[in-house]
């Protein structure tokens, strides 16, 4: 099997296990403040050291993985839902439906997404649920175009025509016949988007627009760490690497999937 996919899967599965069993893995309360143990470097007691309030960075990061992964998956699920439905309708029906939906996609593309998200979050108030929803609602445009393109070619295929002749309804043709044939590029794009969503969440939390302190997320651990970068390197290095590896892993899985699923690339390698 593809090496990138294996590497990525190992990292992500590890992350998921950590997130799932956070209470057992984190030996200390991530919220407990200890003024006697401020900014302690990594040691046996505090694997990743402590922060300016004496909280255990390792435990905070373990709980933070829950945030990153859930935001990644849920945001992408939302954008998949919107992207597939709109892209499917657009590609299948064409004409006016396509026109309206494509204008909408162009509008979405016009906005600088990150600033749009920041604006909406400021408006709605920062919370992790809002972050998930807003990332989902603003990141479907690419998927929509992709699904549309797939539907445009697939709807001309004989088996679609044959389904129509046999009295299959449009909805069923779209979702039972065409969609399963269009999934390969969707998987690739969705995997890559999970990495993107995690990155956006970290950035929002870093800016104080995501997970609110004292609750931990990789982004807001970085925020508190940045003031002590000169002597408490562990506060920035560990969460930084966690974000890096997670996003990298999703991207590697995505690229690997692309290689495995794309028949054209497969031909080239032979």
């Amino acid at each position: 099997m593809n090496k990138r996919i294996i590497f990525g899967l190992v990292v992500i599965l590890g992350m998921m296990i950590i997130a799932l069993f956070a209470p057992f893995i984190a030996q200390q309360d991530p919220l407990e403040i200890n003024h006697d143990a401020r900014l302690e470097p990594p040691s046996i007691n505090h694997l990743f050291g402590t922060d300016n309030l004496g909280r255990d960075t390792f435990s905070r990061m373990v709980y933070g993985s829950r945030i990153s992964l859930s935001v990644g998956f849920i945001a992408v699920l939302i954008s998949l839902g919107i992207g597939i439905s709109l892209g499917g309708l657009s590609g299948y029906y064409g004409g006016k439906v396509d026109g309206v939906i494509m204008r909408l996609v162009e509008i979405m593309y016009c906005f600088p997404t990150f600033f749009l998200i920041m604006m909406i979050i400021t408006f709605l108030g920062p919370s992790i649920v809002n972050v998930m929803i807003v990332i989902g609602l603003t990141s479907w445009a690419g998927l929509c175009r992709l699904v549309r393109a797939e539907f445009l070619t697939l709807r001309e295929r004989d088996f679609v025509h044959s389904a129509k002749v046999q009295g299959v309804s449009d909805m069923r043709i779209m979702f039972r016949h065409i969609l399963p044939n269009a999934m390969a590029p969707v998987y690739v794009s969705a995997t890559l988007s999970i990495g993107g969503a995690i990155l956006i969440e970290s950035a929002l939390s870093f800016l104080g627009l995501g997970v609110q302190i004292p609750n931990p997320s990789w982004g807001n651990i970085l925020t508190s760490g940045k003031n002590y970068m000169d002597y408490a390197w562990w506060l920035t290095v560990f969460p930084g690497f966690a974000i890096l590896f997670t996003v990298l892993s999703f991207n590697l899985i995505g690229e690997g999937l692309r290689e495995v699923l794309d028949p054209k690339l497969r031909e080239k390698r032979r």
């Binding site: 295929r157 088996f159 002749v165 399963p180």
Partner: peptide, 22 residues
Amino acid sequence: KIRGKDISMVFQEPFTALNPVM
């Protein structure tokens, strides 16, 4: 309701007329 039930059709290319992933 009539298509495929009361009047049905068989095509020239049986292979492409079937859904490849079903």
